Simulated assay, not measured.
Amino acid sequence: MRTPARNAELALLLEVAGTPKPGNVDRHRDLEDLRFEHFLAGAVGAREGLELAGDGAAVGAAFERAVAGMAEQGGGNTQFGSLLLLVPLVRAAREELAQPTVEAVCEDTTVADAADFYRAFDRVDVFVGDPPADMEPLDVRRGSDAVPALEDRGLTLLDVMERSVPGDDVAREWVTGFERSFAAAERLADADPDAPVTKRTAAVFLSLLADRPDTLVATRSGEAVAREVSDRAAELLERDALETDPDAVETFADDLVARGVNPGTTADVTAAGLFIALEREAIAV
């Protein structure tokens, strides 16, 4: 029987293996400096931090260790956002993998957890938007240099996540009880049980992208592009294109890669959904 940490590692591997995943690295598509094998190595590298979470370590320390291990490959940031979702989920799975338990894990985070979260930014470059002028001392891109300001204000990791909403849907999961992650798990469980998990993963990714404009796309390419991408995903989903016209989905995926449009937040939520489904034995691999 796999431990929660092992299921989290497997979720990361299944997420990148899902194909097609428009705008993201998958088995058929690499980005210019970020390739499929970098994601495989990132998932394996994150194992130690995930095991710390499974053993009951503090969320911040486990996350920082997971990111450090993830970063030990040549592609840079592969799964930072996914790990920010998976670490509290793995921690919660020690008791019960349910929304109230995950909410309690997040509510129990401390200033020390927030400091470790900031230190994780020293490990790898993460694309984030510019903060408001009054929040510049707390800009996460400053990494450990921002820790004194963080400590002066007494902000916990949950406080930091709350200040990142509505512009970051990974942070939004923290303040909504991982609402979309649990919904993704239910969709995976309800999908055709005879279909490969990688195909079900691609279908759930497309459904999540259709639900909400991706916040990473909005930050990097603008809200209009994010809405356009979400609308295209909804149109493909409405006509069941993965089954009836898979070439159209492949074309969409190729187009987003060519344009440098990456719905990476949707991929992060997909990974979290995969973990929950694996832990609940709603999908089998």
Rank of each mutant, 00 (worst) to 15 (best):
33 D>K: 03
31 L>V: 10
40 L>F: 10
37 E>I: 12
57 A>C: 05
75 G>D: 05
100 P>D: 00
48 E>K: 14
37 E>R: 15
72 E>A: 14
64 E>T: 05
28 H>V: 06
78 T>E: 10
91 R>Q: 13
90 V>K: 04
97 L>K: 06
67 V>C: 10
38 H>P: 09
93 A>E: 00
64 E>Q: 09
46 A>P: 04
57 A>P: 05
29 R>N: 03
74 G>P: 10
63 F>L: 15
53 A>L: 06
50 L>T: 14
88 P>C: 05
84 L>T: 05
67 V>P: 02
81 G>N: 12
48 E>T: 15
64 E>D: 10
72 E>W: 01
62 A>I: 05
53 A>D: 14
80 F>C: 14
50 L>G: 13
65 R>P: 05
37 E>G: 04
88 P>T: 03
85 L>M: 13
55 D>L: 04
32 E>L: 07
56 G>W: 00
58 A>H: 01
99 Q>L: 00
52 L>M: 14
30 D>R: 07
71 A>V: 06
78 T>N: 09
36 F>W: 15
90 V>N: 08
73 Q>F: 01
51 E>M: 08
49 G>S: 08
51 E>G: 13
37 E>Q: 14
86 L>S: 10
97 L>F: 02
53 A>S: 13
95 E>D: 14
39 F>M: 10
72 E>T: 11
27 R>H: 08
80 F>S: 10
32 E>Q: 10
57 A>I: 00
70 M>V: 07
80 F>K: 08
72 E>F: 01
102 V>G: 07
78 T>I: 13
62 A>L: 08
33 D>I: 01
71 A>E: 00
54 G>N: 11
42 G>L: 06
82 S>P: 00
103 E>D: 07
77 N>A: 09
82 S>W: 09
93 A>I: 02
94 R>L: 05
56 G>V: 02
58 A>W: 00
48 E>S: 15
44 V>M: 11
74 G>R: 03
96 E>I: 00
36 F>L: 13
68 A>E: 06
73 Q>T: 07
58 A>M: 02
56 G>A: 03
33 D>M: 03
39 F>L: 10
87 V>N: 06
60 G>E: 09
36 F>D: 07
